[in-house]
Design a binder for these strands. Sequence first.
DNA 1: GAAGCGTTATACTAT
DNA 2: ATAACGCTTC
Length: 648
Amino acid sequence: MELNHQQKIAAEHEGGHVLVLAGAGTGKTRTIIARAAFLIHKGVAPNRILLLTFTRRAAKEMMNRLEQVIRGEVSQLMAGTFHHFCLYAMRRMSKQFDVEGATIIDRDDQIQLMKLIRGGYRKKGEQFPKAAELTNLYSYARNTLQPIQEYMDAYSEYEEDITGRICKITKDYDQRKKLNNYLDFDDILFRFAKRLHEDPSIRERMRGLYDHILVDEMQDTNPLQWLILDGLRDPARLFCVGDDAQSIYAFRGADFRNVHSFTKRIPESVVLRLEKNYRSTQGILDLSNWLLRASSLNYNKNLAAFRKTKSTPKLLGFDSDFDEARWITEDIIERHETGSPWNDHMIITRTGYGARAVESFMVEKKIPYRFIGGTSLLQAAHVKDLFSLVRASSNHHDELAWARYLTLWPGIGDVTASRIITKMKKHASFNDAFEALSKSLPKKNDLLKGIHIVVENRSSPEAAIQEAARFLARVVEQKYNRWDLRKRDFELLVRLAGRHKSLAAFLETYTLDPISAASAERLEDDDIVTLTTAHSAKGTEAVVCYLIRVEPGMYPHIRSVGVQEQEEEERRILYVAITRAKDELIMTRTYRRGGALRFLNSAVAGYGSEEDVYLLQDIDKDLVEEDIIGFNKGGFDDYEMIKPWDRG
DNA sequence: GAAGCGTTATACTAT
DNA sequence: ATAACGCTTC
């Protein structure tokens, strides 16, 4: 594997803990892979190496590349996200970690559970934080290791009375999770970290598992994750790679002290740098450098291109997102017809919502694509219906699953469902609970048949999903319009289930690693266009990148406006997006205010100032080629003139 | 009292 | 598209 001097020094470092500061496109992934290969060649057994990545997609990709480099078996090397690793480790010692039979719940389930509890604390007609907001607050506090009370006192603007109730709600929430044997995403990290630090025998055992821990995207790790790394190191050596200019997960508690204070926390560590950019042309990097220089923070970054070609980024204006989407899809088709593979193109969006127009044009023009980020297949209502049946069939303590499944049936609402669940909870065995259920039902009901069908087929995930889907289709098809479209998702799930050994494994895999409908359909198809959020684009690259909706209200996103640290994070998000491009960077924007921008001037709570803030407002004119395409030409200067459009 | 329907509000990023 | 909420019906 070919490495430059700096990469080689990092990959072959022989001392203790290392932090590698690597700018965008400087071969971060390459260096981590080279590090793993170096260690293995040196005689370190693959199962003594732990590789922690930000997504499982990244882990999979790195493992594939590593396999090619060392031309040998690397499956013994543990690679995955912090969540996967912690869950895997806890399952291996499930008694000690008390995770036997636990159900992993995703964010939607968390919110659902929170909603049940919230009802008991909200006074009628009162403005009270929504379940999603409560979940966010609690999750943030846990990931940053703050007691919820302290966090609320320090940062929230809620009144004392509300704060107090929020704290009580989180206690109830914890208790409710325990009753249901649920583990939410935060529990996975939290429980592991807690036991790791509290129980010396567990700590010794865990520390004995690995000699080397490689960590990707270090700038986006949070205090809780640091606690985990800190508990696992010595004798294991940390090899952490990151870039503070690409820190874009502060909302999830990411703490760049994990990068900035690395040597302070581990005095015997060294910091190495990767500085040569191999990905992009100098024109793209000039824009990136400008963006960071325009900040009040000192990022101390100046990316220099290894490549000699220079291409100037474009900034194209459109009348509406509709025109923007049409132009982009036509441009991609034209490039494809003249020999570029679909693969070469990536479309990057700030929000899932902002990509709607593009997505519909992709479908209409039949461009093969996958959407990474955004709403996943599992969040679709009908898929949740199906999963609730499957979950309910395997665990009578799964309150959320039972509540959803029971209320699918006519005559059963929240209250009745809740009553039935309480009755079932009293029984230890599934059969007794099932007996109690049959007695609780007002009359003979097909409801029980659904449970039977899954139980009978549970040894084969494929058959179980197939039969469950067939059964459920009759129950819910009236509930949804365009059922034929939704039904296709069921067929997809049957195929996916066939790849797993057990129903539980199937469910868990897609809970921890949500899969979007568009990407799932294209599992075997490699030459496709990638449509992705800026967040999910991190760590990837493409020959031609289209950044859509690069306009006020999106960069920075409207909800960040007015909070300096958040606006600064938006700069980094744009930085990440821009630096994905290899040869060509095409930024597009719209001038019509629609979608999220409709709220720009409204006084909706939680939204920032009315002033327009725009990261490219004062851009050097020679950094980009600007053009206006579309029926009503406008530019930065006559932006004010466009405003009356809003009202139209 | 509970179920279910119709209307209105909301829409960022994610393991 | 879906969640949240209030209102009507059983």
